[in-house]
Write a protein that binds this DNA or RNA. Structure first.
Length: 160
DNA sequence: GCCAACGTTGGC
DNA sequence: GCCAACGTTGGC
């Protein structure tokens, strides 16, 4: 494992933005806008370029970890918070003190076999994953190095 | 600072 | 579409 690299999981509803969308985006890169939860934002603020990201499809059939991305730009203000016409507009966030940040991530790969939530739950070594905690709704969450290694092994991926 | 009301998330 | 779990808001 690379020195100092950290690992994350980010959720997206595939009907809104899927890993295929990321793979087909310009430069296979997207800004992760729309996060409006302080804990998730705070995690994004600690991300570094090169950190690895599990891409999770929520509200999907089945919900599953479907691939991997990497952080290519650290946190910066999410423009959609200032846009009155935008769904994620936040009238209480002034330009002088932006409340919400985003990062950029780039596609790395889609797993040949995606990992459904059910399957992850059956893996004892993943029992403490934030994703699997009862009631957990965090859309941006940390993954330990050990969990990362287990997930990639389940996905049949060598290296990271 | 408490907490009821409300909105959202996301599995099922 | 249902609803449990959770986060935020705002009256007091």
């Amino acid at each position: 494992m690379a020195q100092g690299r950290r690992y994350w999981l980010m959720k997206s509803e595939p009907r809104v933005f899927s890993i295929e969308d990321l793979a087909q985006a310009p430069r296979q890169t997207t800004c992760w806008d729309g996060v409006r939860n302080y804990q998730a934002r705070n995690f994004m603020r600690t991300m570094a370029v090169g950190d690895r990201v599990l891409f999770y499809h929520s509200n999907a059939e089945p919900p599953a970890v479907v691939g991997m991305a990497e952080v290519v730009r650290t946190a910066y203000p999410d423009e959609t918070q200032f846009d009155k016409t935008h769904h994620h507009y936040d009238p209480s966030s002034p330009r002088s003190a932006p409340r919400w940040d985003m990062v950029d991530i780039r596609y790395r790969q889609t797993f040949k076999a995606s990992l459904p939530l059910d399957q992850l739950r059956q893996e004892p070594r993943l029992k403490d994953m934030v994703l699997l905690r009862k009631g957990s709704r965090l859309s941006v969450q940390p993954v330990t190095e050990e969990e990362w290694a287990v997930v990639l092994k389940l996905a049949g991926v060598k290296g990271s």
